Computed example of a mutant assay.
Amino acid sequence: RTEAQLDAVAALLEGSASLPGLEVDTDLRWSLISALSAGGRQSPQQLQAALGSDSTAKGKSSWYTAQAARPTAEAKAEAFEQILSGTLSNDNHGAVIAGFNMVHDPQLISGYTERYFASILKKWTGLSHEMAKQIVVGLYPSQEVSQATIERTDQFLQELGEQHPALRRLLLESRA
């Protein structure tokens, strides 16, 4: 999160620093890229170049994470819309959710609570179980640790009643 920490991550990615026994393989490379992206250290062009050097399905999912991790309101809005669109594969859907939640400043995603609660029932009943579960759990406003989040969750659960017991359970677990 700090400049020094991001410098260390960048050095590992570039190969100008190493750690004994640590091999920067493809998966670790993408983890470093995503961390740098969340820290504002990867431009869209750099992310596109990284994807160009790893056009595998795993590389594409990792690229989605890095894209969604960018620390801008625009990137978070784009990611949120992609998540709700229902057009991504299960893997890429989960990757965008992971990137959306990679924030150094929780304020970047704090404005999504109402949109989350306004959309989850429709997504729960309209998407596959796996995609809906990813949304319900992955987008739950857990970074907004507040009484207001708990109250909003309770309100939603009260409105839901006894319908959709699996959705209820996921929300109760997230609330806890």
Score class of each variant (00 low, 15 high):
R1S: 10
R1H: 11
L6V: 06
A8D: 07
V9D: 05
A10M: 10
L13V: 08
G15D: 00
G15S: 02
A17Y: 01
S18V: 00
L19D: 00
G21Q: 11
T26E: 15
L28W: 08
L32D: 01
S34Y: 06
A38E: 08
Q48G: 03
A49K: 12
A49Q: 15
A49G: 11
G52P: 01
D54L: 06
D54A: 10
G59I: 03
G59H: 11
A69N: 01
R70D: 01
A75N: 08
E78K: 13
E81I: 06
E81V: 04
Q82S: 14
S85H: 09
S85W: 10
G86R: 12
G86M: 01
L88N: 01
L88F: 03
F100S: 02
N101Y: 07
N101T: 03
Q107F: 14
I109N: 09
I109M: 09
G111F: 14
R115K: 08
Y116T: 00
I120G: 02
W124T: 00
M131W: 15
A132S: 06
I135N: 00
G138R: 11
Y140E: 02
Y140L: 02
S142E: 10
E144R: 12
S146H: 11
A148I: 10
I150R: 09
D154N: 10
Q155T: 14
Q155L: 13
L157V: 12
P165I: 03
A166E: 14
A166F: 15
L167Y: 09
R169T: 06
R169V: 04
L170V: 01
L172C: 06
R175W: 14
